[in-house]
Design a protein around this nucleic acid. Structure first.
Lengths: 232, 232
DNA sequence: CAGTATCCATTTCGATACTG
DNA sequence: CAGTATCGAAATGGATACTG
């Protein structure tokens, strides 16, 4: 199905599959551990189900993804060929972090941000018991302004409705600021100092928060030495 | 211009640029040293000039390619950001060699094959003076059947017309066979033994030929252990 | 040489609704 | 839950011709 380049070159043959729109993002989601159709959808919310279905079929036919019926649930996972794409996806991510740092307004998405943050919470660092972290995205329309990450012994959840318990820490920032912190484009210290991001709550919890929301390896990728300071 | 995913994820931001059709192949050509518009075209012959032009503009805007007027020639070259794509392109190539080994008939292209072979001739291995290697693609329409690679002290050329001098070696094989040898999908010894590929000429030259047409690193990529033998 | 311009067929995709 | 069906808008890109 993917369109052909008419070249025997292995780069061309690989890209016939891999350069189809959304494909690498589906692989990324599988890498990150999503196994089911609707779990995958959460990672690529702007993709229509029809298209996701089609891509999964293409990837399955290409031998990158294995589709299996487990019990009565359909499960997708990467095959060996798929797992060998991981270093490529990671390298693309590192390249993106370094060389495509500008984010448009369309790239900012509260749901996706919180979803991504929640799956990287360092549960070891968070105190035992039930911990709620509240987020207030100051510049976002009211309906998507308030979010909560709830950490318990069982796991980590995101909510867009108040879970009830008083938050241990409240993070207040613009969506862009929080996104940039999360991507590692700026660090906590900088935005705290400038006041772009404010933490409310008990002092020790506030100080610990950056360790709870541990930056990924991707976010810690060294940036190119900047030659000009005029970029945001 | 590239269409947007609406994600802040660096993989998504990078792929917005990189998954546009043809883009990685243009980068590959730049990596391999093509600097000028028409030189680039030779590496992507099925790409229309309008589209190549457009991709070069996009890549330039993205900071991956630098367009410069040198004298009165336009020159394209990779920037630092572009050079950092090299390991990605190479990794994609290795992945392709391993996991997309099947070639359709549309992937076979005599011109592209000879073009690629000629730029990898190991001139050190070829005897001094003028050496002509002739190719006869036994299963190809007459117009594209005969090719010559000419190695001189000045460099290496491909011709589709007889350069005159008697060839030191003549390689006779089907297009698919020669392509597979070149990609490293089968080795010289195997196809020589099976008779799929025949060398004519003086014995020493015939024996030396595989060293003249040195396989690329890509071709020497180890293949996955095969579990089934039914794949071609 | 290094592209641009134009035009149109095709493909692709997003939105929405629906199903076992 | 895990998709499929349908439809129309939009983008894409191939062919071809042309230009400074």
């Amino acid at each position: 199905m993917p369109s052909q380049y008419g070249q025997f070159c292995p780069v061309a043959k690989a890209m016939e599959l891999l350069d189809e729109r959304w494909t690498m993002l589906v692989v990324r989601e599988l890498m990150l551990g999503s196994r089911h159709f609707n779990a995958l959808r959460r990672g690529v919310p702007r993709m229509s189900p029809a298209l996701l279905s089609k891509r999964l079929q293409t990837l399955t036919r290409a031998g990158v993804v294995e589709r299996r019926l487990e019990g009565n649930r359909v499960t997708y996972r990467l095959t060996e060929a798929g797992r060998e794409l991981e270093p490529i996806v990671e390298a693309v991510g590192r390249w993106g972090v370094r060389w495509v740092p500008q984010l448009g307004d369309e790239d900012l998405d509260p749901h996706l941000l919180l979803w991504d943050m929640h799956r990287n919470v360092d549960t070891e660092a968070v105190p035992d018991g039930r911990t709620v972290i509240a987020f207030v995205l100051t510049d976002v329309e009211p309906a998507a302004r308030r979010w909560w990450i709830v950490v318990t012994g069982e796991g980590v959840d995101v909510c867009d409705v108040d879970p009830g318990d008083p938050p241990r820490v409240t993070v207040e920032a613009g969506l862009r600021t929080l996104t940039r912190v999360w991507r590692g484009d700026v660090d906590w210290a900088t935005v705290l100092r400038s006041g772009e991001l404010v933490l409310r709550g008990e002092r020790p919890a506030c100080r610990a928060l950056p360790r709870w929301l541990a930056l990924t390896d991707l976010a810690r990728t060294p940036r190119p030495a900047r030659r000009d300071l005029d970029r945001v």
